[in-house]
């Protein structure tokens, strides 16, 4: 395997608050290879966004403690100075945020946003930067790019705005693109357009993508590898096909069974996960954090289980006997009968 582009080792992010320490990310390690699309899935509070924001140095909360390493092309992003980091961000690593309206400044045009970004990293004239902005807007599928380059954010629809943000992110040809819920604010038909666009741009530009999302379906459509996060830890990680076809962790089973079937079958009730996601402020962390909601909980869930590679490349952090997983999964994912 080639040298990873991003190598995150034992990343921990915690916040000191008035009521105690809140652990948002609790020791995750993963790599992103060149050209990889990695999907990071989890519910609100699972630490999926915070982990990537902290890697990019985008958390400026003085009470935030970040530990571990995040090697990008061999250099640790977490120990870089602000100036070094600024040179990497935007040029080599770009980010797309969920809400395209707040990611753009309302008083400047689309062209200004993109050319500003280009000129921050490269010595080019305003005219040349604007010409590249037009090309980029064209590449992300904005009709009449030459005219639209002078439009303001409010003159674009939500989907078009997200295209502008993507054009901005791609403007310096980054080798890593971090997309944080890029389609969550969009309608489903527009979401399909943006996902297609990201896919085609990925094959054209060859960037690696870390796709942060709560939607298993989106991950399944887009990524080569999937990481499922719960309570700031990795519950399961592996190649997409493996994880989709043979999910090993009860949380992954629950996530998949919570989504109404999309194949046209109808069930009376969904096999929902009981309870609410764990609070990151809970001080008792030396156990499987999902155990409180898991129907297979036992004494073995304490202390905190290790991430084990049961199948080559496919990791999970559950203590259930590996041989029983298929049968237990069948039980867990079968929709419950209607209660009498």
């Amino acid at each position: 395997m080639s040298e990873p582009l991003l190598d995150v080792r034992d990343l921990r992010v915690s916040f000191r608050t008035r009521t105690g320490v809140v652990t948002a990310v609790d020791g995750i390690s993963f790599t992103v290879g060149p050209g990889d699309v990695v999907g990071l899935v989890g519910e609100s509070g699972s630490g999926k966004s915070v982990s990537m924001l902290s890697v990019l140095g985008l958390i400026d909360n003085p009470n935030c403690v970040i530990e571990g390493q995040a090697l990008f092309k061999g250099r640790d992003l977490l120990t870089m100075s602000d100036d070094e980091l600024r040179a990497v961000r935007g040029q080599e690593i770009a980010m797309i945020f969920q809400d395209p309206m707040t990611a753009l400044t309302p008083v400047y045009t689309a062209g200004w946003h993109i050319s500003e970004q280009i000129r921050a990293h490269e010595k080019v004239s305003k005219k040349a930067a604007l010409a590249r902005a037009v090309q980029l807007l064209d590449a992300v599928g904005i009709p009449n790019a030459a005219d639209r380059v002078n439009s303001y954010p409010h003159e674009f629809s939500g989907g078009m705005r997200q295209r502008v943000v993507i054009a901005m992110a791609l403007s310096c040809n980054p080798s890593l693109l971090i997309a944080d819920e890029p389609t969550t604010a969009l309608d489903v038909t527009i979401q399909a357009q943006i996902l297609e666009l990201l896919k085609s741009l990925q094959s054209e530009f060859g960037s690696s993508i870390v796709l942060i999302t709560h939607d298993m379906g989106v991950v399944s459509q887009m990524s080569d590898r999937v990481m499922v996060m719960y309570g700031g830890r990795l519950a399961e990680a592996g190649p997409r096909r493996e994880v989709m076809r043979n999910p090993l962790h009860p949380y992954t089973w629950g996530l998949m069974a919570s989504i109404p079937p999309t194949d046209g079958t109808r069930v009376a009730r969904l096999a929902a996960i009981p309870g609410a996601p764990i609070s990151p402020g809970d001080p008792d962390r030396d156990h499987c954090l999902f155990s409180a909601r898991c129907r297979f909980v036992s004494d073995a869930c304490r202390p905190q289980p290790e991430l084990v590679e049961h199948i080559p490349g496919h990791f999970d952090s559950c203590v259930l006997p590996f041989a029983d997983r298929v049968e237990l999964r069948r039980q867990a994912m079968t929709p419950l009968e209607v209660a009498p």
């Binding site: 629809s157 989907g159 527009i190 399909a192 399944s220 989709m244 989504i259």
Partner: peptide, 22 residues
């Protein structure tokens, strides 16, 4: 067709992508 489906063989699925906005 636009619903993202959990599917191990996602690449074989043909989908209709609507052009343009509402």
């Amino acid at each position: 067709s636009a619903i993202p489906v959990i599917d191990a063989e996602a690449e074989v699925r043909e989908r209709i992508v609507l052009t343009g906005d509402l």
